[in-house]
Simulated scan of single mutants.
Amino acid sequence: MTWLKSAVAATAVVALFAGVAPAQAADGKLVVGFSQIGSESGWRAAETKTAKAEADKRGIDLKISDAQQKQENQIKAVRSFVAQGVDAIFIAPVVATGWDSVLKEAKEAKIPVVLLDRQIDTKDNSLYMTAVTSDTVHEGRVAGEWLAKKTSGKCAVVELQGTVGSSPAINRKKGFDEIVAKNPGMKIVRTQSGDFTRAKGKEVMESFIKAENGGKGICAVYAHNDDMAVGAIQAIKEAGLKPGSDILVVSIDGVPDIFKAMAEGTANATVELTPNMAGPAYDALIAYKKTGTLPAKWIQTESALFTPETAKAEYERRKDAY
């Protein structure tokens, strides 16, 4: 990814932020404005909860704005944070495009911007200081590799995509498609956005089942997040089929409900996406404020595959954190 390695962009960011004194709160705390997408999933709620907890640990004053899944609300929030003179702005961008104008306003105000869990499409990488994300293409590959191995590379797959235009939806599809291309017996027979929500995932899965001979033409469902997978599981049950056996279920995130489903035998695999995106972002910001040293342009979080063998223990470990 050339955007991760751009020396030109890095130089521009250094020039932008060098020597900037933080405008701190009255009590001396760093003030961070966080434009959060909303609460469309259990994972998103966990990210918000974790962001608050990690801010408290570091004595940071965190101001959260809930965009209710609308980019226009995020843009308004960023402009409000700029007007307030916060020390930094965190954004979990609902979609990848359309950010240059408002980020230029933050740049002119000398307020560093950090992207959380999603990336943006821009030709000017100096508009943000760093991005804390997983490798979402890799997540799609891991899900695809598990399914290819499980089915010996022979499977008719229906796909529940995330929000149209969002970087996770684009990349998780890309990674999965790479594995499908390597396995001639695997084919995506239906694909549609479930908007990362449980209700929409159920609705779309119902339409897939009707279109594919009552579900008999479906080997597996690949969902871009666990909440859509949980919705799909309900649709499969209501169609008189057994999720986890009649139709395999593989998804991404690692929220408690998917571990519960795996323990019950109604889901088969999930690829974890840690909700702690803010912790590394705070650490990078604090280090920058103290030393002036810019973080890497991309701070990558880890991803891991989980299957039913450890599901019960993982559910118990995670249920109170989400």
Rank of each mutant, 00 (worst) to 15 (best):
P184W: 09
D121G: 09
A131V: 15
T151D: 07
L305Q: 07
K150W: 00
G59L: 00
L294C: 04
Y322S: 14
V249L: 11
G140I: 07
K150T: 13
R318M: 05
D253I: 08
T122S: 15
D227P: 06
Y128R: 00
A83K: 09
M186Q: 09
D283Q: 15
A77P: 05
S303Q: 11
G98K: 03
E264K: 13
W3K: 12
K149L: 01
G59I: 00
T197Y: 02
E203R: 04
D226L: 13
Q161S: 12
E159M: 14
D320A: 11
L273T: 10
M129I: 01
P184C: 06
T274C: 01
T191F: 08
A229P: 03
G214P: 08
V180W: 07
F259D: 00
A25P: 07
G140F: 06
D177W: 05
V250S: 07
R172I: 11
A311R: 01
Y288I: 06
L160T: 01
D226F: 11
K182I: 00
N125L: 11
V95I: 15
L4I: 08
H224E: 15
L248T: 06
R172M: 08
G240D: 10
W3A: 13
D320F: 10
P112A: 09
D253N: 15
G28I: 11
P308Y: 13
G240S: 07
V8P: 02
A281C: 05
D124F: 08
H224C: 12
K29N: 07
N73E: 13
Q71M: 12
